[in-house]
Design a binder for these strands. Structure first.
Length: 479
RNA sequence: CGGGGCGUGGCUCAGCUUGGCUAGAGCACUCGGUUCGGGACUGAGAGGUCGGCGGUUCAAAUCCGCCCGCCCCGACCA
């Protein structure tokens, strides 16, 4: 239940976020450092995200499977970059059943290695390919600095793992799943994202190439919201994932992996939320509509509740997710604020006046106060509501896109860069090295978020090295 | 892991400097009455080994030591 006002977004974005997560009833802190409890309201949101993604995975030919949470420690050691990337943040089990284990088990930080083990057993022939498997699970990375949803020691996600006969097929799969993530972000979460390639220093440990979707949060920082990796033959060689091709020659497979996590909930919060609380995109909201009945006495109660039931039934009949807030211990005003905190896209108020006139009061969450309120007839309520939800879904996306555009700059030199990167994203011509990246990060806190897939024609002058280049990069401070 | 801050009913905190009597307040909670179209009012009630352990003292929430935990800021990451 919500108390009073949140800290304002502009004054203390971080504290605004922390309090909002708790007060919107999404999650709570766990007794174990860095871990989170996702509460039913937050989990329902995650379930809706899962469904929207799972639908897309199935439509592109993938199937789900379950893989163990424990991985022999030696598996991690087999791929050099992979172990270097993950060993600092592994949780390791050394005792089982009261006995010291012969070989320590790591709690999976990601499943590439145990997938490698399984695929090497399963794949013998080109006829076995491709293998297209997805896992819904949680993974553990011993993070030092944590924040609910954005970075926790355990988080929930999906990880897709595929194996292919050729580089081209693996690359096509990697890009296909990046596009699936983009489609999900745009059309379900209402998040504008930039698709791009990670630089060498930012790519996944063990990957050949990592692609990302990057989103701008309400404080203009960037958040990597999903990643898709072309793993080349790195894991195939480490785990002997081999097949006989049509010419009876032994070949290593080309594998991919791609993941999107509960972090996306953080992205939704930080992109759409306002000082009143959360604003959820209608496609994903646990409740799309909340109905608040209003009455002063027994005489008014009967007719009001009858109208509420009638409206609820029509909305349910139209396939909408509807909640009637029938609590009699709090006032309507309290309920308005409470559901605004939780981000329900639409509120319907039904009181004696509405019963009299055959209307309801409709309030849009994306337009606070009177501006978002209108009176609509009870007749045909379902189509009114459905239309309003569509408008909100579109408006949230447009607003976020406009915000990103307004806060994306094109500095021409390092002096300009330093200035703009304090207040937004920098899209720049870029021909720098790994060392240049490190120096820029040291001096400005900004990192290369990605090399966008959509590049302009022609060439320009690198803002840092002064060299001519055909490539642009996006730099930003990031979560 | 380095720097800073904080641990007192469920939550936010006061009390600690200068040790002492029954450890307080607001919010939340329970029961009753009046309310109800933007965070209601009122009366009664319930709820605390003062983060833990040890020390000093006739006496510790208060002073000392050690430990634990959480939050914020920095190096690594979805």
């Amino acid at each position: 239940m919500s108390g009073e006002k949140l800290p304002s977004r502009t004054e203390d974005f971080s504290e605004w976020y922390n309090q909002l997560v708790l007060r919107a009833d999404l999650a709570d802190y766990a007794p174990v450092r860095g871990c989170m409890i996702i509460k039913p309201y937050g989990w329902t949101l995650w379930e809706n995200i899962q469904q929207a993604l799972d639908r897309r995975f199935k439509a592109t030919g993938h199937v789900n499977a379950g893989f163990p949470m424990f991985i022999p420690k030696s598996f991690l050691d087999r791929e050099k970059e992979h172990v270097e990337g993950f060993s600092p943040e592994l949780a390791v089990v050394t005792i089982g059943g009261g006995e010291e284990l012969e070989e320590p088990l790591v709690v999976r930080p990601t499943s590439e290695t145990i997938i490698g083990y399984a695929y090497s057993k399963w794949i013998k022939s080109y006829r076995d390919l491709p293998v297209l498997i997805n896992l819904w699970n949680s993974v553990v990375r011993w993070e030092l600095r944590t924040k609910l949803f954005l970075r926790t020691a355990e988080f929930w996600w999906q990880e897709g793992h595929t194996a292919h006969a050729t580089y081209e097929e693996a690359e096509a799969e990697t890009l296909q799943m990046l596009n699936v993530y983009e489609d999900f972000a745009l059309n379900e979460a209402a998040l504008p994202v930039v698709k791009g390639l990670k630089t060498e220093s930012e790519k996944f440990a063990g990957a050949l190439k990592s692609y990302t979707i990057e989103a701008m949060m309400g404080d203009t920082k960037a958040l990597q919201s999903g990643t898709s990796h072309n793993l080349g033959q790195n894991f195939a060689r480490a785990f002997n994932i081999q097949y006989l091709d049509r010419n009876n020659e032994l070949q290593y497979c080309w594998t991919t992996s791609w993941g999107l996590s509960t972090r996306i909930i953080g992205a939704i919060i930080m992109t759409h939320g306002d000082d009143q609380g959360l604003i959820l995109p209608p496609h994903l909201a646990p409740w799309q509509v909340v109905i608040v009945p209003i009455f002063r006495n027994d005489a008014e109660q009967g007719p009001v509740l009858a109208a509420v039931e009638q409206v609820k039934a029509e909305l349910l009949g139209a396939g909408l997710r509807v909640k009637v807030d029938d609590r009699d211990t709090v006032s309507p005003g309290f309920k308005f604020n409470d559901w605004e905190m939780r981000g329900v896209p639409l509120r319907i108020e039904i009181g004696p006046k509405d019963v009299e006139t055959g209307t309801v009061a409709l309030a849009r969450r994306d337009r606070p106060g009177k501006a978002g309120k209108s009176s609509v007839p009870q007749t045909g309520i379902a189509s009114h509501v459905a239309e309003a939800l569509m408008e909100i879904q579109a408006a949230l996306f447009e607003r976020a896109l406009a915000f990103r555009k307004a806060n994306t700059y094109e500095p021409k030199n390092y002096a300009e860069f330093k200035e703009v990167v304090e207040k937004g994203w920098a899209r720049v011509w870029w021909a720098g090295s790994r060392e240049d990246e490190a120096r820029i990060k040291e001096e400005t806190k900004a990192t290369v978020r990605c090399l966008p897939l959509e590049q302009p024609d022609g060439e320009g002058i690198c803002f840092y090295t002064g060299r001519p280049t055909r490539q642009q990069a996006i730099f930003a401070r990031a979560y």
